[in-house]
Design a binder for these strands. Structure first.
Length: 465
RNA sequence: UCCUCCUUAGCUCAGUUGGUUAGAGCAUCUGACUGUUAAUCAGAGGGUCGCUAGUUCAAGUCUAGCAGGGGGAGCCA
C-alpha cells in the first residue's frame, strides 16, 4: 500500500484536488451529528481554520467514534471532496480513523465554547490549542522571523549577548541572582556577607536586564548589529505590560546619530506591521473580530502615517497649554507620566510619537549630552494603546564626558572597565534602541494583557509551567 | 509596592433588608433527530459558596486577616 504523507490543513483548505486521497492529523475541536453521520472539526495548528471530517456512522466501529471527543488527537485518511454543507468549501470523507490520544470529556478543561483569558492562563499547557492562542503564537513566530529578516536584509549582524552577566551596571532595574552556592550554608566573608569568590564564576552573577552594552561592543567592530534574546527584571511589577522574563530586540549602529536612529526605528516598526498584514491576515482577522475591532485599521494607519517627532521640551509646552487636569502635574524636568504620553499619542496627534531631548537627570548615564548641557539625545517611541514601545538614544562616545556622567550618577567605574575601553580605543559615534518583543506582539495582536502574548509568562508569584 | 474591585457547579455568572432543601446558561452523561456549522430538542447527574477566625438564635450574604486573580498607578521594554 502506498504510504501517504501527512497533509497540512492549511494546504488542504486551499486545494482543488477533489477526489484525491489525503491524510490529516490533528486535534478535535468539536464533533456533532446524528445517528447516521458525524462531523468532526479538526485543527492541526497550521492555520486558524479547521477542516471538516465527515464520518458515516455505519463505516466505523461505534467504540472508535465514541473516543473522538473535543481535545482528542486523531489521524484521518479519506477523500478530499467539495463540501455539501454551507460553512466550508472542502471537507474530507473519512475512510479510516486512527485515535492517537483520547481526551476524557469529563475532565478535559477546554470546551467548545469560549473561555476567559484569565482561566486560560491557569491552563497555559493547553491554551495553545485554542483559536486565540494559536493565532497569537503564529503571529509571534512571524514577528520573530521578520525581525531577523529585516536586519539580515539591511546588513546587520546578529550578536548573542550573554544571559548570565557579572555586570550590574546597566541600571535598568532589579536583577535575579545566579549562583550554585549552598543556599543553606553559603561561604561567608569576615564581615558576614556571602563570599562570591567561591561561587561558580568566582564573582557575583545575575541574569541580564539588557544586551545593550554588549551590543555596543559589537557595533564598534561590525558597524551594524542587533541582539534578540531573553532579558530579566526582578521588579515587583503587576501590570498588563510587564513581565519578569521577556524578549528584547536591541539594534546598535556605529556612525548613526539620533536622527538616523529614529529613521531606523520608524522604518523597522512599519516593516513589521506590513509583514504581519502580508503573512498573518487570517489570524489578524480573527483577533480583529473577537478582541479588537480597530486592530486592522490601527496597523494600517501606523504603516501609512509619518510618526510625529518632537522634543521633550515641546511636549511639555503642549501638555501645559492643553487645559487638561492631570493627576500628576507637568513641569519641565519631571518624567512624563502614562496619562501625558497617552494624551500626546491618542488625543493631540492621533498617531505614533517619537520624543527626543529628555532632561539628562531622568535618563541613563550612557546617553549623549546635547549642546545645551541639560538634555540628552534620548528617544522614546510612543504607540497608541500600549505607550512606550521603544526606548533608545545616541550613545556618549567621548570618554571624558562619559566618565563625568558615571561619577555624577555614582556608577561603579571599575565594573565598567571593558565598556569604557571602547571609548578609549577607536571610539565612534553610535546609537541604538531597545524594542520589547512582547509589547510589539501586544500591539500587533490587539491583545490587552502581556501574559497572553508569551507562551509561558513569568510574573511575580507565577512560574508554574 | 500603592489604590481599587473580584473569588459560588468543569466554564461564565445570578443569589433580595442575614432565614430553613443554593439557581441559570453553557459543558458533561442518557435519549431523539437523514448534512451539521460554537447543531437542535428532551431528560439526568454535578456545589465543603477561596482559606482561617469572628459577630449572630441563624452567614454564600456582615467584620478582620491571609491567599490567588482583574483593573488603575509606579518602575520600565
Amino acid at each position: 500500500m502506498e504510504h501517504l504523507r501527512r497533509n497540512k490543513i492549511v494546504d488542504l483548505l486551499q486545494s482543488k484536488e477533489y477526489g484525491s486521497e489525503v491524510l490529516v492529523k490533528g486535534w478535535v475541536r468539536t464533533k456533532r451529528g446524528n445517528k447516521n453521520i458525524n462531523f468532526i472539526a479538526l485543527n492541526d495548528g497550521s492555520v486558524i481554520h479547521h477542516i471538516q471530517v465527515v464520518a458515516e456512522v455505519a463505516n466505523f466501529p461505534e467504540d472508535v467514534l465514541k473516543l473522538i471527543t473535543t481535545g482528542s488527537c486523531i489521524a484521518v485518511t479519506g477523500i478530499l471532496v467539495a463540501s455539501m454543507g454551507e460553512g466550508q468549501s472542502v471537507e474530507i470523507q473519512a475512510r479510516n480513523i486512527e485515535v492517537y490520544g483520547t481526551a476524557d470529556p469529563e475532565t478535559y478543561p477546554l470546551q467548545k465554547k469560549g473561555h476567559s483569558l484569565e482561566f486560560l492562563r491557569e491552563i497555559a499547557h493547553l491554551r495553545p490549542r485554542t483559536n486565540t492562542f494559536g493565532a497569537v503564537l503564529r503571529i509571534r513566530h512571524a514577528m520573530a522571523f521578520a525581525i531577523h529578516k529585516y536586519y539580515n536584509d539591511n546588513g546587520f549582524y546578529y550578536i548573542h549577548a550573554p544571559i548570565i552577566t557579572g555586570s550590574d551596571a546597566e541600571g535598568a532595574g532589579a536583577m535575579f541572582r545566579v549562583t550554585t552556592l549552598d543556599d543553606k550554608n553559603p561561604p561567608l566573608m569576615p564581615d558576614g556577607h556571602v563570599d562570591y569568590s567561591q561561587d561558580f564564576f568566582g564573582k557575583e552573577t545575575k541574569l541580564t536586564v539588557s544586551g545593550q552594552l554588549e551590543g555596543e561592543l559589537g557595533a564598534l567592530a561590525l558597524s551594524l548589529v542587533y541582539t534578540f534574546g531573553p532579558t530579566f527584571r526582578a521588579e515587583n511589577s503587576n501590570t498588563p505590560r510587564h513581565l519578569a522574563e521577556f524578549w528584547m530586540i536591541e539594534p546598535e549602529m556605529a556612525f548613526y546619530d539620533i536622527n538616523d536612529n529614529m529613521d531606523l526605528a520608524e522604518d523597522f516598526l512599519k516593516y513589521l506591521m506590513q509583514y504581519a498584514l502580508d503573512h498573518c491576515y487570517d489570524d489578524l482577522e480573527f483577533l480583529n473580530k473577537m478582541y479588537d475591532n480597530e486592530l486592522l485599521d490601527r496597523l494600517k494607519q501606523v504603516i501609512s502615517t509619518k510618526f510625529e517627532r518632537l522634543t521633550y521640551t515641546e511636549a511639555v509646552d503642549i501638555l501645559m497649554a492643553s487645559g487638561q487636569t492631570w493627576e500628576f502635574p507637568v513641569s519641565w524636568g519631571t518624567d512624563l507620566q502614562a496619562e501625558h504620553e497617552r494624551y500626546l499619542v491618542e488625543k493631540h496627534f492621533g498617531k505614533p510619537v517619537i520624543l527626543t531631548g529628555y532632561p539628562k537627570d531622568i535618563k541613563a548615564f550612557y546617553m549623549k549630552m546635547n549642546e545645551d548641557g541639560r538634555t540628552v539625545r534620548a528617544m522614546d517611541v510612543l504607540f497608541p494603546k500600549i505607550g512606550e514601545i521603544i526606548g533608545g538614544s545616541q550613545r556618549e562616545e567621548n570618554l571624558d564626558a562619559l566618565l563625568k556622567r558615571i561619577h555624577e550618577m555614582n556608577i561603579p567605574e571599575k565594573d565598567m572597565w571593558w565598556y569604557l575601553e571602547t571609548r578609549k580605543f577607536g571610539t565612534a559615534p553610535h546609537a541604538g534602541f531597545g524594542l520589547g518583543f512582547e509589547r510589539l506582539i501586544l500591539f500587533v495582536t490587539g491583545m490587552s494583557n502581556i501574559r497572553d502574548v508569551i507562551p509561558f509568562p513569568r510574573t511575580p508569584k507565577n512560574a508554574e509551567f
